[in-house]
Design a protein around this nucleic acid. Structure first.
Lengths: 208, 208
DNA sequence: TCCATATTGTCAAAGTCTTGACAAAGTATT
DNA sequence: AATACTTTGTCAAGACTTTGACAATATGGA
């Protein structure tokens, strides 16, 4: 799709642009210049223009960017034009929290089911989603498309479950287990290490 | 503490070193060279040595690094030698998930209480922690030290609650609300945007 | 004790990312 | 229709980060 490789640094910024632009649209703002946006986001205008230009000229000289159009374009870049079928492995508090996010569906992200070793322990159901036993996972994968698996399970279980998922055809992994999941190269793993982020905070409290 | 400013890139890597080193120690491994560690972590040995050297010479030529000692040193750098008192604002699934992490206490991170607008809705209690009403927050802040507040509340409430916390003396904010919290410069905010991270995954599924 | 080997700490080069500057091209006003 | 203004897209310079190389120095075996 794009000409040259896009750096990780740029990709990380795209959802943030999305967030600010969506907020602007909600406020009824239709156009925005890189300068105005840069002031709100506390980045340089140059960076915004440079980032957006990697994917195409979405702006217009003398005018700026059309907010709705830019949301649409960045959404396409991020793959939100395609729908994604998602399952959550681990129906504990974290799994239920993620499964319960309501805004995902606006972006083509559909949570289809949860899995847990002890599904009956799940007192409340989450938005009416089914909670299956882990033993049913291979069968489910045979009969249902799954683009992304969310792993909210202990690190001791994470790798073996990920392998079942990979063998069942899943290629997207959103991993909350406390280890860096290593899977074959055609699997895409986004590791989320919450405690790493908390330690960055304790670092700053100590040093700054 | 350190001579020159440490870059954000380095600080981000420290918790990851911590994770791998802790795993090594659990396996009974007492010494490790930057070369071995670099192979496990899939980074360059040079980067490991350069990073660690910013804080002091923790290694020994011809030997490598002592695992336990290095864990201790990085822990100090990250501020884990100090104890931190933490409260969680929002006792929904996410708040309860974070409050329930058991490993925090090994690192001096003590969750003391949760707050919620509707504390009675919280069916199960979390490890026996008290769940207070939000109306009790200002009083709590007068009587208790709070180093870090975890915000797991809707974005519409986040800024006003953060200001109450800031006025009550809280300077560390671990923010899960879906906006970038802007607070005075002496407050340290670590924003965690889970959906940003999921969008990086959808980007990669589309493009790679 | 000596020597071969291992491995750090550090420097400079290479690579990547961010910023400032400005021509080109549009908008808005008179 | 002409002019002043705005703002993009793009380039090159500057800043920052990562890597490779190697002297210095320790280990461990003979």
């Amino acid at each position: 799709m794009e000409k040259r490789a896009i750096s990780q640094a740029v990709i990380k910024r795209l959802p943030r642009y999305m967030r600010y632009l969506t907020e602007l649209r909600a406020q009824g703002i239709e156009r925005i210049s890189s300068k105005e946006l840069s002031e709100q986001m506390k980045v340089t205008a140059s960076q915004i223009r440079q980032d957006l230009n990697l994917f195409g000229g979405f702006g217009q000289q003398g005018y700026g960017y059309n907010v709705s159009n830019l949301i649409h374009e960045i959404g396409n870049i991020l793959g939100l034009d395609q729908s994604h079928d998602i399952i959550v492995i681990g129906a504990g508090n974290l799994g239920r929290a993620l499964a319960g996010y309501e805004n995902f569906e606006n972006r083509g992200l559909y949570i289809r089911a949860l899995f847990d070793i002890a599904p009956e322990k799940t007192v409340k159901d989450v938005r009416g989603l089914p909670v299956y036993s882990m033993t049913e996972l291979p069968e489910y994968l045979k009969n249902n498309r799954v683009d992304i698996a969310v792993l909210t399970i202990p690190k001791t279980a994470a790798l073996s479950v990920a392998q079942i998922l990979y063998n069942g055809g899943v290629r997207g992994f959103w991993n909350f287990a406390h280890l860096d999941l290593a899977l074959p190269d055609d699997a895409y793993v986004e590791n989320v290490h919450l405690s790493d982020s908390l330690m960055q905070l304790t670092y700053r409290l100590k040093h700054q």
